[in-house]
Design a protein around this nucleic acid. Structure first.
Lengths: 195, 195
DNA sequence: ATCACATAATTACGTTACGTATCGTAAAGA
DNA sequence: TCTTTACGATACGTAACGTAATTATGTGAT
């Protein structure tokens, strides 16, 4: 499908799209989410405002698109579950601990939850690590390293939820030490023999 | 301290403050966070705009103040750790699952993290349940119901983080069933014998 | 080559909300 | 009464919104 019309008229300029995204990213890093407006991106990039609105519905979606590019994949490697978790959670925590992290949280919270781009953003930023984690747990179960947990989805929530929690609540630091401790605690609990 | 001046001049009107808060809450529930503006609150409440700015720095702070009132306390009761957790997490999940929940997340993400009111909000909404949880775990340890976990703070993150995680990421439902499953999984993992 | 068409950039517009300043009025203590 | 402080009303300049009209430009079809 989607071979309906072999393209009539002037094609959308990938250059304009990239210039807008790049300007949005610059503004996000330099001035933060609050300063990101469609007008500012238009002014900085030289791309016309209507063109930006042709690509994204509002500033939140533009922000998400800009933040999505260059976000690390969720995968990780390691011989044991704990090693794999440490590696993955360290990457994740580092990505969130930068200025980018709070901006991502803002974009997530602000954006329309049902939007197409919001879903893509969640898949890329939130759920990819989660999927990798699901595979890691399955592998550990097959290895006999841990017993199968009662509800895998809930266990995944317990592993990845804390990262967002610390970012938003800010009650405790979000750093490498936390990533290590979280991986260790999760692995330790899961490694205990099931009754 | 703070007996500096035994009050000169016209005292701030508690009535005006309450009217503004109540109007803000109404707008939040009827139209959501995006529609909450200082102007709208002023128009709806009859309170002057400058008066509102005298009380709160911006719309986010006003929203937090409005949301803070009427949020459930974090406490919970139960003979076993799991029972207490089920009760507490059900309350928490219900509070977040309503429209209010997403608005709270938005206010949290949007507001200045260092603001005075933001800290108060976090204490009230986020950390009170966490503190109750810490007590519940300590009690369960003393009862011999569970072994002492490696890092209590991390375990608390693993219990309460998932709620915010599901709210923001939206990958899985945030409902009573989830509260029950989360409590069960946490209690089951903690109840396993330490190696 | 020329036509039809979709997109580009520019410009302008009406709207909403911002946060501040000024004003005269109202309520308290001195 | 006088002083002080907060009140409501109003007005202001600024910023950004999202849309429309316009002209220019690049591409496939005729």
């Amino acid at each position: 499908m989607s071979q309906d019309s072999p393209k009539r008229g002037r094609p959308p300029s990938k250059a304009a799209r990239d210039k807008a995204l790049s300007a949005a990213r610059d503004i996000l890093f330099e001035q933060g989410f609050g300063r990101l407006s469609v007008e500012a991106v238009a002014a900085r990039s030289g791309v016309g405002k209507p063109t930006i609105y042709r690509h994204w519905a509002n500033a939140s979606e533009l922000a998400m698109a800009a933040l999505m590019a260059g976000f690390p994949e969720g995968g990780a490697e390691g011989a044991t579950l704990e090693q794999a978790l440490v590696s993955q959670l360290t990457d994740l925590v580092r990505a969130f601990a930068t200025t980018r992290g709070r901006q991502i949280a803002m974009a997530l919270a602000t954006a329309d939850p049902d939007s197409e781009l919001t879903r893509a953003f969640r898949n890329r930023v939130i759920l990819s690590s989660r999927d990798a984690g699901r595979a890691m747990i399955a592998a550990a179960v097959t290895r006999g390293e841990i017993a199968a947990p009662g509800t895998v989805e809930v266990v995944l929530d317990m592993i990845y939820g804390p990262v967002l929690y610390r970012l938003l609540a800010g009650h405790q630091p979000l750093d490498d030490a936390f990533a290590t401790a979280l991986a260790a605690e999760a692995a330790a609990l899961l490694s205990r023999p099931a009754p």
